[in-house]
């Protein structure tokens, strides 16, 4: 983690029943500099936003998105996944500077 990429917060149920559609919420600390904002000297602050987010389950993409400067600072995302089996979820964020942030969580499906 470097530059503007901060801590990630992920919320999902630890356990689910097979076939349930669970809600996953993910947020990462990031200023999401739009490139349109002037600093105190009146110069534009260079754009640096989280431009890509991916959620994978056992290596397969479940959900992804491309983000644009209109996203709020500390981008928050909520989406769903059908719980078919126990396994590992990987969450990945990438910003304009090329910095990557990755988090992993396990879900038990019974």
């Amino acid at each position: 983690m470097a530059g503007n990429m901060g801590r990630a917060l992920i919320s999902l149920p630890a356990k689910a029943k097979r076939g349930d559609v669970i809600e996953i919420r993910a947020m990462i600390a990031h200023p999401m500099e739009t490139g349109f904002r002037p600093d105190s000297q009146g110069r534009l602050v260079a754009r640096d936003i989280v431009n890509r987010f991916e959620c994978l389950f056992e290596g397969e993409q479940v959900f992804a998105c491309d983000l644009f400067p209109a996203m709020s600072a500390n981008p928050y995302l909520s989406f769903t996944m059908r719980a078919d089996m126990s396994g590992e979820l990987v969450f990945r964020w990438r910003d304009d500077s090329g910095a990557l942030s990755e988090e992993k969580r396990r879900i038990e499906v019974e």
Binding site: Q61, V62, F63, C65, T80, R82
Partner: peptide, 8 residues
């Protein structure tokens, strides 16, 4: 957003 059938 990019969805997949796995999203449910």
């Amino acid at each position: 957003y990019k969805f997949t059938p796995e999203a449910g």
